[in-house]
C-alpha cells in the first residue's frame, strides 16, 4: 500500500492583478476576470526559480513529520520551467534536503501534469517495496510571452508530496489517460510556450480530464457519490467547475481545492496545491478524487482516502494562509522579476 506521508507547499509572496496586465495591453480587465475566473497570479522573487520553490515546499513536508531524509529513495521534480535545460533540478533538491547520495533522482516534464507523474511513480516504487519513501514535487515559474493570454494566468508555486508505507492519506488507486494531442508546447531554445488557444477546451482539457476520472472510477469500481472532494488541474476557474459538473460533482466539492482565482495557474503545482488545500481541511475517511492535466495530452487520476493519522498531523500554515500573505507588483517590476527585460 502507498500513502501520502506528508505534504508541503510554497507560493511566492508577490502578485500581479489582472487589471495591471490588462492596463498595459489595452484589454478589458473585467471581461478577462469574468472569462478566466482569475483575479491575480503569484510571481516569483528575483532570486526564486523552480529549484528554490521545490526545496521550500519539500522542506515544509519534512518539517511536519519525523522522518530521516536519508530514508527517501527517490526524488522526482516535475516542471515546465526547470532552471537548466540539461542538469537535473532533483539533485539540487536532494542535496538541500540532506537526502544523502543513495537515492534515485529524475526531472519530469509533461507541462502541468509533471508533478502527478512523479506521484504515480513514487506510488508504484513504494507499493512494490523498492523504496521506503519517495518525494514527488510539482514546481514551476511558468513562462508567458508578454501580451499573450497566458500572461494573465502563468504563475509560480510548488507542492511536495512525500509518499511512504504509512501516512495521513492512502492512495487507493491511480489511472492515466494519454493521447498525442498538440495543445501546449515549447520548442527547444524558445523562451515562451505556444498553445492551441480555443483548441485547449474540448479535445484537450475536457477529453483527458473526464476520461481519466471516468476510467479510474470504472476500473476500480468507484462512483461520484464515493467522493467528498474533487480536485482538477486549474488553468482557469471555469474549466475545473465545468469538468465537475459534467461528471456530476457539486460546486461545493470543487471549491475547497480551487485556488486559481487567487494565485493563477501554477502549472505542475496546480492540482497538487489544490490537493494540499483539501488535505488542510479533510477529515478521516473522507475521499478525494485528484485529476491533473498537462500539455493537451494527458491526465493522471488518483483516489485518495484520508486516514486517522491526519488528526495528529500539523497542517499549519495552511495553503490558504500562505495565499493571503502577499505583496503586489506593477507590470514593469513584474517584467524585471520575470527577467523579461533584456540588458
Amino acid at each position: 500500500m502507498s500513502f501520502i506521508t506528508s505534504y508541503g507547499t510554497y507560493i511566492p509572496r508577490f502578485r500581479i492583478r489582472v487589471e495591471e496586465v490588462a492596463r498595459i495591453w489595452g484589454e478589458n480587465a473585467n471581461a478577462i476576470k469574468e472569462g478566466l475566473g482569475i483575479k491575480e497570479k503569484s510571481v516569483p522573487d528575483f532570486d526564486e526559480d523552480t529549484a528554490t520553490i521545490a526545496v521550500e515546499a519539500a522542506r515544509e513536508a519534512f518539517k511536519r513529520v519525523k522522518i530521516n531524509p536519508k530514508d527517501v529513495g527517490a526524488v522526482f521534480v516535475g516542471s515546465e520551467s526547470h532552471p537548466y535545460a540539461v542538469k537535473p533540478t532533483a539533485t539540487i533538491v536532494g542535496e538541500a534536503l540532506g537526502i544523502g547520495n543513495e537515492y534515485f533522482a529524475a526531472d519530469l516534464e509533461f507541462a502541468c501534469k509533471a508533478g502527478t507523474a512523479g506521484m504515480q511513480i513514487c506510488y508504484a516504487m513504494v507499493k512494490s517495496g523498492m523504496i521506503k519513501y519517495g518525494l514527488a514535487i510539482g514546481s514551476d515559474t511558468a513562462q508567458s510571452r508578454p501580451g499573450d493570454a497566458l500572461e494573465y494566468a502563468a504563475a509560480a508555486g510548488g507542492a511536495a508530496i512525500l509518499i511512504g508505507r504509512e501516512g495521513i492519506a492512502e492512495i487507493k488507486a491511480t489511472y492515466s489517460y494519454t493521447s498525442d494531442t498538440p495543445d501546449f508546447w515549447r520548442r527547444d531554445l524558445q523562451p515562451y510556450p505556444n498553445h492551441g488557444g480555443r483548441f485547449t477546451g474540448e479535445p484537450a482539457y475536457f477529453r483527458h480530464v473526464i476520461n481519466a476520472a471516468k476510467g479510474l472510477m470504472e476500473k476500480y469500481s468507484y462512483s461520484v457519490e464515493d467522493f467528498d472532494y474533487v480536485v482538477f488541474h486549474q488553468p482557469n476557474a471555469k474549466f475545473p467547475l465545468k469538468a465537475a459538473s459534467l461528471l456530476g460533482f457539486s460546486k461545493e466539492q470543487v471549491t475547497p481545492g480551487l485556488l486559481v482565482t487567487e494565485v493563477g495557474n501554477t502549472y505542475s503545482a496546480s492540482s497538487l496545491i489544490g490537493l494540499c488545500a483539501v488535505l488542510d481541511i479533510a477529515k478521516p475517511e473522507e475521499r478525494i478524487l485528484l485529476v491533473s492535466f498537462g500539455s493537451g495530452a494527458g491526465s493522471d487520476a488518483f483516489v485518495i482516502e484520508v486516514t486517522e493519522e491526519i488528526l495528529d498531523y500539523p497542517r499549519n500554515p495552511s495553503v490558504r494562509d500562505k495565499i493571503s500573505e502577499k505583496a503586489y507588483l506593477d507590470y514593469s517590476t513584474y517584467l524585471k522579476h520575470r527577467r523579461k527585460i533584456k540588458t
Binding site: 522573487d45 532570486d47 526564486e48 526559480d49 529549484a51 528554490t52 521550500e56 522542506r59 532552471p83
Partner: peptide
Amino acid sequence: TFRKYGEDGDAGIIYYGTK
C-alpha cells in the same frame, strides 16, 4: 530560505544557497 545567489552568465552554473 533557499534562494539563488547568482549565476555564471547566461550559460554557466547557477549558484544556490541560504538567505
